[in-house]
Amino acid sequence: MSRVEQGGTTAGGATTSEVTTTSDVTTTPDATTASHAGAGVGRAPSLVWTFGLFRSELVTTFRRWRTLALLAVLAAVPILVGIAVKIETGDGSSMGGGPGGGGGGGEGPAFIAQITNNGLFLVFTALAATLPFFLPMAVGVVAGDAIAGEAGGGTLRYLLVAPAGRTRLLLTKYATVMTFCLVATLVVAASALAVGALLFPLGEVTTISGTRIGFGEGLFRALLIALAVAASLIGIAALGLFVSTLTNSGIAAMATTVGLLITVQILDQIPQLDALHPYFFSHYWLSFADLMREPVYWDELQRNLGLQALYAAVFGSAAWARFTSRDITT
């Protein structure tokens, strides 16, 4: 319990006021003045300082075992698909109903048949296989836990009295979830690219339209597709964050978000609800395949981005309205 008299001085870059603040707390007026001067100085660069929370949030999120486990599962999907395709072609059997087809809807098999000719197609297949469930589930877990997990653990009250600021904390959380969307998608793509390059030949790419593009151009398209897939997750991220502001239980928020995801996916398959389909966040998800057309068919891609933006606006506002007016009792 001994007191160290000079804390600020050890950090070379400390300003004069900081030194006073940390090293001298013995007399009332001085301490008061110094702390206030410190706050006054702090106001100027606080725009940069304010991102400290975002950095801390990223570090905290990506250091959790749960996050790493989710990313590991996502990285394993292309490995399994790649090995399965390799074994099947080894047997000389046909590729029609490949393992990616189950989740990949109409586009999956089209890509999967080409994997043996070009490993790059494993990237498209893996993204098509993970987008309907694995990717949004992972995002739902991270988004659902974002606020509710902090509330349940009691850490939310300490972040707010720090003071993190409710709007700032919510924006930081949303930015972190979006970062996770991007990282998760890139993990799938990178794992698929590595497995594809290892097991299959690489080379020129045949587009859906039948034209051929160079490998470099194909790689660029793959990156665009990964970005389109990551952007497709914006809606579920906003929805998950909103659910997260409603409860103090991280588990409940995660389960609700993943439950909503499954429900919407099922409803999207019911023809009687045709009129509602364009408003389901998952409806245009597979539009990313249009990036493999020559020329690129932008129509559905744009509709997808518009829909995701709409979800972000609606549920982002709802989350903000709820979170800024809520009593924190945990």
Binding site: E18, T22, S56
Partner: peptide, 19 residues
């Protein structure tokens, strides 16, 4: 917790945490 405070100087953060 210190990073959550936008008025806390990140340059002195480690030192202040140590104290």
């Amino acid at each position: 917790y210190d990073a959550a405070d936008p008025t806390a100087d990140p340059r002195t953060r480690r030192a202040r945490v140590g104290v």
